[in-house]
Nucleic acid binder design. Structure first.
Lengths: 341, 341
DNA sequence: TTGAAAGCGCTAACAG
DNA sequence: CTGTTAGCGCTTTCAA
């Protein structure tokens, strides 16, 4: 392995100068820069990022803690996060916690502040208290997409307006004249997706829908679970003409349940999801959903984390990025008229 | 940040002893171990992995270079890789190259051997020559799932028998009496998936199928592209009764194309994919496919890389893990009889 | 069983 | 503009 010192020797300067050539070239005489660059090239020198991190007291690495990359929401997020990190000279450590607080804790304690200069924590079951301690230990900690009722007051948080997202779905179904609506509420990491439901329910109420016209069921955040929940719900309440799911996976499961029960989507039953994962447009019928600005959130989270790492972050706590927006595709349509039954 | 030295002071020993307590406790008197552990606990000490890496000359980090996590094959792979790494005390850096050799190269040069002790390189457009140089620079480099004709002779490679996978698909369709078959060959990172096709074609030939009974078309490795390719193919050759796609995404696209063309799967048209990504069983009709032992490959790749990092790897070059296996689901059925046309 | 000392490769004042 | 010096926090011989 070629070191700075070897380059220095070859270029007949000291290590400090080589370091300067690499990091503040304007502080070095052009001729010297040339000579050093030549040496670097000839020797094939590559800076040792570990040594640099130790000397600087700051790693060039960021950690992303999420429950499980296998949830189709995450790959898009990870991609965008990694791109933003790379653009700024950082690398991305991906940490799956499997919704296990013990794993999350272990990760945090091992790498926050040492291996990773900052940590982006997606919705998790970890107590905020613990995260705050980690943050005091010197690592930049940014919360991302937390839907907890008790959203943080001490840690910065990048998120979207979950309630508004739910409201968009409600407005859409209401305009299509649906009056008997079912809702599937997901239980993801960090608790139920209840803010989305609340936004949905309140928007419905605001539009004059009776409270009992909405039937709520819970489900896990997966296609399989959405399938079961939707099936049960439709069996119990056959009169429902529309279903709102607090995430796309469940909505897709619901579409399959509808198909298996002989109900045509959207003719007999409309379905709206939330998030707009890739799958939403790839499935048939393509899913109407409320889009989260996923890539944007990811990039913003990374940017904020790095600003904190580098001490240039503004003293703001809540970052609400772009509003969610409705994406109408094929899974929603007008409520079936009563006549034709 | 609490350092070793502070712990040492508090426990009234030297840093060397604290270090030993952490890494070779059996070399330290039990009473001292106790005292040191107490100090660690009281102070909330957490080892600095960056410093450790520098001192040891070995990072506790592994890099996984892949084209794009957004391809549904990868999340499952990443998850398994990360679990294996974590189990062994390592962390996973995820690097998206976007099929851009320049990005791949930049990553490699920046982190291989310094930030990351080892690198797992999935199919890429990088010349093997370059990877070999990196490996000589001191990083463990492991190739994973390379399908190149020119598979490496100098770098270890974890892979599956691509030809056998194709052959399984062929045997299945042949047994279902399909005689006019179309094949969609993907163009993923690192070139066409031609070994899979070759295995498929040869198995067909071995079963007495005429060479011209197989029609081949190419496509990119995505649902959208598979859709287009399948549509064109079915339009050009309406007599085809079965389609083989060299990966599941294309197969799913093909299913949608068939649906849009009014062809019932599997009644009018059988479709077989390859890899068995999650989506394969979530789509309707569920896709018949040839399963790759994805998690197993991932774990093996990580294990091998770490063995190389730690110098305990056997001197073997090619690791073929478990055979692929056919998974029959709903997208394949007997060839339609001519009578009923 | 423990300590002293050197050093991993780099950065960051500060001096000249 | 360049060199000197002193670490960053940890590991690792080698002595004691």
């Amino acid at each position: 392995m070629v070191t700075l010192a070897e380059v220095a020797r070859r270029a007949e300067v000291t290590a400090a100068t080589v370091s300067n050539v690499l990091r503040n070239p304007q502080k070095v005489k052009p001729a010297t820069v040339e000579r050093v660059m030549a040496a670097i090239r000839e020797l094939g020198y590559r800076p040792n990022l570990t040594a640099r991190a130790l000397a600087q007291g700051r790693a060039s690495t960021l950690a992303l803690m999420l429950s499980n990359v296998t949830n189709p929401f995450y790959p898009e997020f990870v991609l965008a996060a990694e791109r933003e990190a790379r653009k700024r000279g950082y690398f991305l450590l991906v940490c799956n916690t499997d919704d296990d607080p013990a794993i999350a804790r272990a990760y945090l304690h091992q790498i926050a502040g040492t291996l990773a200069a900052g940590v982006i924590v997606m919705n998790t079951d970890l107590a905020e208290q613990e995260l705050t301690e980690i943050a005091q230990g010197g690592a930049a900690v940014v919360l991302c997409l937390w839907e907890h009722a008790q959203a943080s007051r001490t840690l910065p948080c990048v998120t979207v307006d979950f309630a508004a997202a739910g409201a968009l779905a409600a407005a859409h179904l209401s305009e299509l004249r649906h009056r008997k609506i079912g809702a599937l509420v997901g239980e993801g990491s960090g608790g139920p997706q209840s803010v989305r439901l609340r936004g949905f329910a309140e928007a419905l109420a605001a539009r004059g829908h009776a409270e009992k016209s909405l039937t709520v069921a819970t489900s896990h955040d997966s296609i399989e679970s959405g399938y079961e929940a939707a099936k049960a719900l439709l069996l119990a309440k056959p009169a429902l003409t529309a279903l709102f799911a607090t995430n796309d996976l469940m909505a897709i499961g619901a579409m399959q349940a509808a198909a298996d029960m002989g109900r045509q989507v959207p003719h007999d039953l409309s379905i709206v999801g939330l998030t707009d994962i890739q799958l939403a447009r790839q499935f048939r019928p393509a899913l109407t959903t409320v889009r989260f600005p996923t890539a944007h959130i990811a990039a913003r989270s990374v940017a904020l984390t790095l600003e904190m790492v580098e001490g240039t972050a503004p003293a703001q706590a809540l970052y609400q990025v772009r509003a969610p927006e409705l994406v109408v595709r094929e899974s929603t349509g007008p409520a079936p008229s009563r006549r034709r039954g």
